[in-house]
Every structure is written in C-alpha cells, then in structure tokens.
Amino acid sequence: MNSSGAAIVLSAQGLTKSFGKRQAVADVSFDLYEGEVFGFLGPNGAGKTTTIRMLVGLARPDRGTVRIRGLDLSRDFAKAMAHVGSIVESPDLYGYLSGRENLLHFARMLPDGAKERIPELSRLVALEERLDDKVETYSLGMRQRLGIAQALLGAPDLLILDEPANGLDPAGIREIRRLVRLLAAERGIAVFVSSHLLSEVEQMCDRVTIIHRGKALATGPVRELLDRSSSGWTRWRVRPAERAVAALAPFAEEPPTSEDGEIVNARIPNERVPSAVAALAHESIEVYSVEPRASSLEEVFLEVTGGETV
C-alpha cells in the first residue's frame, strides 16, 4: 500500500530481457497502485515496449517477475490476465470486422458479463454511431478508442496503454487524456501509460518512471522529477537581449544564453529573481515577462543521469 492506502495492482521486480548480446531491459522494477496514472517515460528504443510485452506475457523475461493482484504472471497467466486490459504498440483490431464484431469477438474470450458492457463502453469512447462500420474505415483516433473499449471489456483493474497519443491530432490526444484520468478517478483503475513525450506524461500522470537504455533511472511523482531538473531555469523576454545577458550574469549560476534576440535563458534561484528584475530596470532594459522554463525530456535525462546525453 502507498501513503494514501491504495493497494498494489501491478508489481514488476527486476525485469531483465536480452536479445542476443543487446540488453533491452535491465533490472527494471516498479509498483502500480489502484487509481493512479503511472507514466513510463523514455525515448524511442529505451525498452518501453519490451517491458510492456513482459508485463502482459507476450515475452518471457530472462529474469524478474510480474505480479498482477499478487498473481505471478508466469504461473497463473490466465487468472492474472483477467485483471488486465492493454493496447501494445498500436491499436490493432480486425479490419474486416465491424467495431461491434471486434468487441463481441474479444468478449467471447472473457468470463460472462463482458458482452453486456459493450453498449456502455462504446458510449464511453464515443463510438456508438460508427460501431457497425468496418474497422478498416476507422481513423487512427477511432481505432485507439475502440482499442480502449476492448481493453475495458473485462472490467480490468489495470489498463496498459503503449504510446496512446502516437499519431493522434491534438483533439484526439485531449480525448485520450480525459478518458485516462476519468478511468483512474472514477473506476479506481491503475493506468500504465508509456510515452516518449515529457509533456504528455506531465499532463496525464501522477507518478513516472524514467527509462533510458533499458534501465529505470528514477521513479517519483511527476512534479518532483520536473522540479529537480528545471530548478532555477527562467525564461526572460527582454529587449535588448544582448545587454540583458550581461546584466543577469551576476545573479545566474551559469552564464545566461540568449535565443532569437528577445529571449534569455538564465539559471537564477527563485529568491534572486526580484533583484535581477530590479537590476534590469535600473539599466533601462525592458522586461516583458519572466517565467520558469519548462524543462525538456533531455534536461530531465541530463539531471537524472548526471550529464549523460540521450
């Protein structure tokens, strides 16, 4: 249980997988709790999909265990998987069947009651009107939503989504984000979301594990990790920028840099910001705005790896 008393739904311990000589995933461990959205963040090729394949039993780990609701996946596969719904890599369904036929197909692979959830779930993912059209006529966003409906057919405790925003337009991404938050908040589902986009994880997830070259670098609440890496970076809109660089230098922890003539990035601790503003005003440099600069995935990596680049 975590601090708020929620139970563990998924526990991965020491997952390791090699392909030939290449170690794709090395000793990755994490726990997921009821009702939380958990981000699995890393660049493409970091080992996210390989990890997910081990979580759902598509690939066998060389070492390590996956427990779902306490059931060992390698020993109680069917029982453990009854708690899981997933989309691995892309929402692939039968194109020559309609949305409804796809859902019926996968409902037949589940215990009784799955079929009765189809109307409710198609409403939830807003596909009611197109449910009897063939899936090959669906847009990627619709397939993604049908994939989520499929994953929810068995009323799972754990939902695993692999790069759910991939290939979606901004409206589609917003819709998925809303759905994920809703499922976690209202149904207490633990949602595992992999992504290579920091902003996506930031907006969707409660906690995050950062994975890089097969290794889990850090795990923690999203804000904490972001703050760690962005500490003190500020973004100044000033004119003229060249003089501001010089004026801000005494307050900054490393030499400030300017970009495209109006913007200066400087690493200035919070408490020094007012005096920095006063100094600029004193030199008649026009200050239009000062804001904390959002850190990029690269910077998070720099911070957690201590300088190793992506």
Partner: peptide
C-alpha cells in the same frame, strides 16, 4: 500480420 495476436494472447486464455 494484423497485429491482433497481441490482443489474442493477452486475454485470460492459455
């Protein structure tokens, strides 16, 4: 080739 094997083999069925 359709990718549906990923769902087929992650259902509570051996």
């Amino acid at each position: 080739s359709q990718g549906t094997i990923k769902i087929l083999l992650t259902r509570p069925v051996s």
